[in-house]
Amino acid sequence: MTLTKKDFLGLYDTDAEEIEEILNTARAMKDILTRSVKKVPTLRGKTVINLFYEPSTRTKFSFNLAAKRLSADVMSISKSTSSITKGESLLDTAKTMEVMGSDVVVVRHSSPGAAKFLAENISAAVLNAGDGAHSHPTQALLDMYTIREKLGRLAGLKVLIVGDIAHSRVARSNIWGLKKMGAEVSVVGPLTLIPTEIEKMGVKVYSNLDKALEGADVVNILRIQMERQESGLFPSIREYRELYGMNKERLKKAGKDLLVMHPGPMNRGIEIESSVADSSQSVITEQVKNGVAIRMALLYLLAGREIKNEDID
């Protein structure tokens, strides 16, 4: 097993070999998910806490399911239904979880660096399920897994990420991960939503979607948040759709081999037309499915370190 760090915080400091390890482990996990009995005893007796400070449907559900498939005891805490609303700090909440005996704390938080902060302060393994605009490694891993499953490789592929790059942890994690696996990454969006000096992360920047789509193998379309328009970062939803929306004309022009992805939740009819989201080129539902496998892989790699490999069979 190559994943040796206590925590899994992001892809910035994960190397290609470790990514490879996670993706391969996920493949074994996906096999489990296709069986009629979709559960293995691997993490029996282990406790996983999902600490979600931000609303989330798929990530939380996915982590829950992943833990359950591995027979871990899993509990989820949301901001609105816990002592967090009484002003308890992130640290105290996590320490409480820790002394109750959790092995892995999965954390989703709106502050960049929150997962790292936790990791430094508790002895349980911390798994980053998204920290502000910084990092969302499991999403990037499931995206990479999906691409590799569909196209057979990552190296040399041209991946385009569309939309609000500035506020996107998905974009950053995808850039780190894909670059390490040898893919070429470009980003496109309104220039107000492209963060400063992102070129230094080794990506090409476009402001014109049609140009950016030329030669792309994969397009990953990000969710556009309505509050960005309200805060003056782009003029209207109508104009956004026209300039940066993925529609069937653009899909047709890009060709049949373009793989269409979206991390969800989608604004159908805004950043992505339904005809595109539901097309044969779309792997959006596949992404969700693979998400469970990726999260199983990471939970196993973090919590099941002392457990032998054979046990997952």
Binding site: Y12, T196, E197, I198
Partner: peptide, 13 residues
Amino acid sequence: GEGYYSTLFGLTP
């Protein structure tokens, strides 16, 4: 401060 590092760290610049 806004720059490469704010982009890298995902912190509002």
